[in-house]
Design a protein around this nucleic acid. Structure first.
Lengths: 130, 130
DNA sequence: CTATTTGCAAACATTTTGCGGCAAA
DNA sequence: TTTGCCGCAAAATGTTTGCAAATAG
């Protein structure tokens, strides 16, 4: 399965990086405005392809409007409110491991953290990719 | 708003901890089997309440069957396959910051990681909780 | 050329909600 | 007693899919 480089795919990735961590719908609205022929299915399909190609991850679930995606590959972390779902970047703090320290600096109340490693499992690593 | 302690809520939390990081549906199936009167709406409602009370988080999105939840509060991390969505715990490795080191040990191909801090934003921290 | 990608719309899956009755505090 | 919570089923929301036409390589 050889992937083709369509301008649609570039547009999805490009806009995703610009927006930070938008939902599929938010992405669609912006792209539809720029390129009226862009369809929702194309956005969804390309998000999945970008994810499988390790060019994006879905990071913040359960927020209003569905899954949020993220194509920024540098170390950067998120703060997510358990109550209202607000989510924003915490940059340059990635050395800090102390929740209390980050709580104080960002004026939020952090109660836990999770770290997820993304990649390919043994089975999928063997198959051709991209 | 004073929350009541129903046995349903205890059952959801208890089963969630036993199962690790199940989807709402997986949780419902197990609970329905133990307690036939348990409804899907109760599972969904209580998962949201547990989340708002910082007793659980939704961690792994985009996996088949919807959002996955997690009520284990000790430091523990996840490996998530970008291709097939398989997800499993990586325990006791939380001191390791090197993706390559973990890749080797677990025989997977890790290409990135994300760390999310969960808590309450300034606005929500002020409001009464639970 | 040929296989992948697209737009559209319909299908599907997941989650939320309204309501009347039940039950915790 | 007072509200929050329950089960049920319908509604809403979010995502995927089948198909024929378009297009990248």
């Amino acid at each position: 399965m050889v992937r083709r480089n369509t301008w649609h795919r570039y547009a999805v990735k490009d806009e995703l990086m610009k927006l930070g961590h938008p939902t599929a719908e938010e992405l669609y609205i912006v792209l539809k405005d720029k390129y009226p022929e862009m369809s929702r299915a194309t956005v969804y399909r390309n998000l999945k392809i970008l994810e499988e190609s390790a060019l994006a991850v879905r990071v913040i679930g359960g927020v209003e409007g569905g899954e949020r995606f993220d194509a920024t590959m540098e170390p950067h972390y998120h703060f997510i409110c358990l109550k209202c779902g607000v989510a924003y970047d915490i940059k340059d703090e990635y050395r800090a491991t102390d929740d209390a320290e980050i709580s104080k600096k960002h004026n939020v109340e952090i109660v836990m953290h999770r770290k997820n490693y993304y990649g390919y499992c043994e089975k999928c690593a063997k198959k051709e990719r991209q």
